[in-house]
Amino acid sequence: MSLADDRSLALAGTRDEDEIRRARAARIERLAKWALPVVIMGLAILGWAWIVTANEIPHYILPGPDRVWDSLVNDWGMLIEAAYLTGWITLAALVMAVVGGAGLAILFNQSKMLELSFYPYAVILQVTPVVSIAPLIFIYVDSKIAGMLLCAWLVAFFPVLSSTTLGLNSVDHNLRDLFRIYGATRWQRLRYLQLPSALPYFLGGLKIAGGLSLIGAVVAELVAGTGGIGSGLAFRIQEAGYRLNIARMFAALALVAAMGVFIFAALSVLSHLLLRKWHESALRKEG
């Protein structure tokens, strides 16, 4: 008895080699997750600079990273104004995609006939490339802003629609039975059962829609050109290209990419906040 106790006492607080190794590996991975991409980025920029200087490439063909940086700093006022417009269109389109996509999904879910009638057309809208629809849109829609919103919405709403539809239909069948036994109304079933069940699916669709609404906004700008309403980033890229201001093209491109990363990160954080308490995807894996 006392032997066992002594042994327990000696064991308390010890960590065996497996655990220590695992902890070390986890620490290294946490660091590497940030450090490695930064290092790769640094190396790529250095390599880029070296190629440009070593081969004496003229800046109107390929500017070095220093020139792109200069352009970013010097044209900051113009670029940020352009980013503001593009960002605004993207965000508005995303909000409309959420309202339209989730709204349609709920309508389809409530009425099978409605779904059978209109779902195929939602698919057709989605599979027709937006680049080919955009010119038509700008013929019939007078307001450039409205046209751009429509373009961006067209690409963004479908993932929200299809993933929310899937979610609304993925309710645990026992829970569905339970709601029936307790005499739940259609509205109660939607609100207390189907919408919460669909949330993880909806958030997955939202992440895709975030990226797509930016693509939609960029395509719309390229097709719309400028009509005295200010110019977005995509238009600035095109314009700088006509002027052989390649550095500015890169600077504007960097901002578009940054915007995409920001949207993705923001939606990931939102998803984590909404699901962390209960959904499997938000659980930390052990061992």
């Binding site: 026992n174 039975d177 709601f179 005499g183 207390y192 059962l193 919460p196 308490k277 959904h279």
Partner: peptide, 27 residues
């Protein structure tokens, strides 16, 4: 009528108290 299935059939997004409240909530 009260029912218990083979699976616990709880709503994963709701707390224990909210799950038990459900039959009343639906009333």
């Amino acid at each position: 009528l009260g029912v218990v299935f083979q699976e616990p059939t709880l709503m994963p997004w709701a707390t224990v108290a909210q799950n038990v409240w459900l039959p009343f909530r639906l009333q």
